[in-house]
Design a protein around this nucleic acid. Structure first.
Length: 611
RNA sequence: CGGGAUGUAGCGCAGCUUGGUAGCGCACUUCGUUCGGGACGAAGGGGCCGCAGGUUCGAAUCCUGUCAUCCCGACCA
């Protein structure tokens, strides 16, 4: 390909809309253009990168016997209603783009494909003899993100590889999951990325085991907590840890303490010399579900700990099973109580023993509290907490004294923090790092197959629901994550395996006929050798072309310049190292060898050559 | 959805306070010089000042509404 025909539009100025370096570089180097919020055009350079990433994904999926298919993006609501996810994905802040067709039928644009693929499995899979099966696809997904940002990192339309496996039993699912884990590690490695696998929350997908693959980068939206030896690593949403020991409260009979205006943990500690770990704090929240009445929730936590919203949501979903999907959890405020015709509550001095009577007359809420207690709070033998009267706290309270309503099962609801000790190995403390989630694999179990009636007949002639796994890779996100991890002040530094071109030939002076002749000959030579080559034949000054080459980030740059008359060219590696001067006639073979080595020896040549 | 900000040429921005025929840099076109790290000179082209109302003799500028985009938060496989 020739630069003059590449639709290469680079920007000298930083685009104002881009916040992180990878987004800026992709815009400046002419890889992407924004079409609307979270919706991007992949320009020819980007599309070549995405095709290369996809090719690696396809090869590794092929290796583990997965089958490529293509499922519809436009999906009927009915399927999602059967799995119970329609309301959760569309109501309120729903992430699913949905619409009505001209007949008034509800449709959604696929944010993922469990429903469609499970319905197909129900249709196609009848016997254990057909199992296991794994199908995958690479296509655009749609998610109406509340706040799209960072270019392709959190886009509303993006390219994803999603795969689904079907098994006769759980052991087989586990084997496939492990194989997929291996394939994912090879994919990220071959794309030149440093990625780590971490334990993850299964979230709205559901299921048991799940693991995320994170590209470590400062710009990452997720927080990873890991031990220094790397044997434990988890997303903070999921991470468990040992909380610091609480500072014991001196033994004392329970008494009231006047605390006017002291409404926060900090206020109490400052005024009375308490340590935050001596206080039980109470959060009042309202959980909204797809069906039925909103549920007021009282969460008790040790004062020095933070609530983990994901753990809370999982606990709520597990305990409230008559109202469909959990849609939203929000703090209860005074105004909301008023709308429910409820008496005001002494926010700031609430205690775990808050009476259900307070909610008895609610207009639309469930008239009693659901109480959840974090283990760090329930483990306190004696503590400070609100007295449920304005300006009064209790000191030396115990769970026994607060009564049976207050004491509930101890749960893990707290956020693990950097510095906490690791549960599996208390000699190690968790360290924090930021990561970009590029892949996620799940053992789904039978949730979807049961909901959608996807059953098969066992060897014994019994009808059972299929065991399922699902496996995602954000292809477009991965490509940008590579830029985030691999760039310098001059621009992008693509690994050879996913670079839009492998070699760029820069003609220093297009008016020098010798340079042009030498460059054209080398270009033909490289194309013949199957090396993906871009020839910068634009009538620009050399400096402009060098800057653009650095920005675009093609791994090998050949400069045909002053040495051309003597039959010499210069080769520069974008990843560093000194320029090398080579005989023009030998440069083709030299480059082919270098490129071949760095393709990881695995990428086939199907993308090679030029039209 | 709450808080904040911004919409003026393809990109980056000024002009708005104090209303009077829309500017700068880059990019683009032509010519000349230059030619190995984003050249120089000259001459050009390109904007319904986000959109809709209103005030005014007159609105990019003031007022109202609306849409869009970005940031923070909530939220989010």
């Amino acid at each position: 390909m020739r630069s003059s025909r590449l639709l290469l539009v680079t920007l000298r100025d930083e685009p104002a809309e881009a916040e992180i370096v990878s987004h800026r570089l992709l815009l400046r180097a002419g890889f992407i253009r924004r079409v609307s919020a979270g919706v991007y055009a992949y320009l020819p350079l980007m599309w070549r990168v995405l095709r290369k990433v996809s090719a690696i994904v396809r090869q590794e999926m092929e290796t583990i016997g997965a089958l490529e298919a293509l499922l519809p993006q436009l999906q009927p609501a009915e399927l999602w209603q059967r799995s119970g996810r329609w309301a959760g994905y569309t109501a309120g802040e729903g992430i699913m783009f949905h619409l009505q067709d001209r007949q008034g039928r509800e449709m959604g644009l696929g944010p993922t494909h469990e429903e469609v693929v499970t319905a197909l499995a129900a249709d196609l899979l009848r016997s254990y003899r057909q199992l296991p099966v794994c199908v995958y696809q690479i296509q655009s997904k749609f998610r109406d993100e509340i706040r799209p940002r960072f270019g392709l990192m959190r886009a509303r339309e993006f390219i994803m590889k999603d795969g689904y496996s079907f098994h006769a039993d759980e052991a087989c699912l586990r084997r496939a999951y492990a194989e997929m884990d291996g394939a994912y590690r090879r994919i990220f490695q071959r794309c030149g990325l440093r990625a780590v696998a971490v334990e993850a929350d299964s979230g709205a997908i559901g299921g048991s085991a799940s693991q995320e693959f994170m590209v470590t980068a400062e710009a990452g939206e997720d927080l990873i907590l890991a031990t220094p030896d790397g044997r434990y690593a988890a997303n903070q949403e999921r991470a468990v840890s040992l909380a610091p020991e609480a500072v014991p409260l001196p033994p004392q009979p329970c008494r009231e303490l006047s605390t006017p205006g002291q409404e926060t943990i900090d206020d109490l500690c400052e005024a009375h010399g308490f340590h935050p770990s001596q206080i039980v704090k109470v959060l009042l929240l309202l959980a909204r579900f797809a069906e039925g009445a909103p549920q007021p929730v009282l969460v008790s936590l040790r004062g020095d700990q933070q609530l983990n919203a994901v753990k809370l949501a999982n606990a709520l979903q597990a305990r409230v099973n008559d109202r469909g999907a959990l849609l939203q959890v929000m703090p209860i405020e005074a105004e909301a109580l008023g709308k429910e015709d409820l008496e005001p509550l002494p926010f700031g001095s609430l205690g775990p023993h808050l009476e259900d009577d307070q909610f008895a007359g609610a207009r639309s809420w469930t008239p009693r509290l659901l109480r959840l207690t974090d283990a760090t709070a329930s483990a306190l033998p004696s503590f400070v907490c609100g007295a449920n009267r304005p300006g009064v706290h209790l000191v030396g309270a115990t769970w026994q004294e607060l009564g049976p309503t207050a004491a509930t099962e101890a749960l893990d609801l707290r956020e693990a923090q950097a510095g906490d000790r690791c549960v599996a190995d208390p000699s190690q403390r968790l360290e924090a790092a930021r990561g970009i989630e590029v892949g996620h694999i799940f053992q789904l179990g039978r949730k979807y197959s049961e909901a959608l009636g996807a059953t098969f007949t066992t060897e014994q002639g019994e009808e059972q629901a299929l065991w399922m796994g699902c496996y995602g890779i954000g292809v477009s996100r991965l490509a940008q994550a590579a830029v985030e991890q691999l760039h310098d002040a001059q621009g992008i530094r693509w690994p050879v395996s996913i670079a839009p071109f492998e070699v760029i030939i820069v003609i220093a002076n297009i008016q020098d006929a010798t340079q042009v002749t030498v460059a054209e000959a080398l270009y033909e030579n490289l194309r013949g050798l199957g090396v993906e080559t871009l020839l910068d034949d634009r009538p620009e000054r050399a400096g402009v072309k060098f800057k653009d080459a650095d920005l675009v980030g093609i791994p090998f740059r050949v400069v045909v310049g002053r040495g051309a008359a003597a039959g010499e060219v210069e080769v520069v590696c974008r990843h560093g190292g000194d320029p090398e001067t080579l005989a023009a006639a030998a440069a083709g073979d030299w480059l082919r060898e270098r490129v071949r080595r760095e393709r990881s020896g695995l990428l086939d040549d199907s993308l090679g050559g030029d039209p």
